[in-house]
């Protein structure tokens, strides 16, 4: 220290200032931003991992569904196959008339009473029909009802009214209210 003259001291001070400047510049303008970039990129990688896992899980579920789907689709196709094409008012009364004709009741009247979209069955409607059979034999009518219930799975009888005819105590008049599911 004894040998340091004024010139030396000035040079040391200048060197120290330069060193401080270099260190500050290095950390603030070079290493700092690079480390921040690395951290941000690593965070993006970490954020992508669950997304990729989720996508892979979704793909696995899709594969599992592909195995489950055929019986369900076959079942839906079977049910849809039971619903004829066209407006129900064009075919349902014909189906009912034919069925009761086969049972021996020549005359029957089928009228649409209400029609509404089924909230629980998207794409399907529920139609209520009033069916009148002016003259039937009670036992044969029971058999016809059994046939209707067995042959038309989408039809459900909501109410039945069988009344004896005054002019012919052996015969009855029948009023049915039925619900039908259509597309």
């Amino acid at each position: 220290m004894k040998n340091l003259n004024k010139d030396h001291i000035q040079k040391i001070a200048l060197g120290s200032l330069m060193a401080i400047g270099v260190v500050y510049g290095y950390f603030d303008f070079l290493l700092g931003p690079l480390r921040a970039k690395t951290r941000s990129t690593a965070a993006s990688v970490t954020a992508l991992d669950p997304e990729i896992s989720k996508a892979n899980a979704q793909m696995l579920r899709a594969k599992a569904i592909a195995k489950e789907a055929p019986p369900v689709e076959a079942s839906i196709a079977t049910i849809n196959g039971m619903i004829p094409e066209g407006a129900p008012v064009a075919w349902f009364p014909v189906v009912i008339n034919d069925l009761f004709k086969r049972a021996g009741f020549e005359k029957s009247t089928t009228k649409l009473t209400t029609e509404a979209a089924d909230k629980e069955l998207a794409g399907y409607r529920r139609i209520t029909w009033a069916i009148e059979l002016p003259k039937v034999d009670c036992l044969a009518f029971g058999a016809a009802v059994a046939e209707l219930e067995n042959q038309e799975p989408l039809v459900e009888i909501q109410s039945v009214a069988i009344e004896t005819l005054r002019e012919d105590p052996e015969a009855q008049r029948v009023l049915l209210t039925v619900n039908n599911i259509v597309k």
Binding site: Q58, V72, E73, S75, I76, I157
Partner: peptide
């Protein structure tokens, strides 16, 4: 999957509706 679940829901309801019908013929 969403489409299948919707189809499955409809299928279940339709099948249940068919199977849970009230049959009048046995009552008569």
């Amino acid at each position: 999957e969403d489409s299948f679940q919707e189809t499955q829901k409809i299928n279940t309801k339709l099948v249940k509706g068919i199977e849970d019908r009230f049959y009048w013929a046995p009552v008569l």
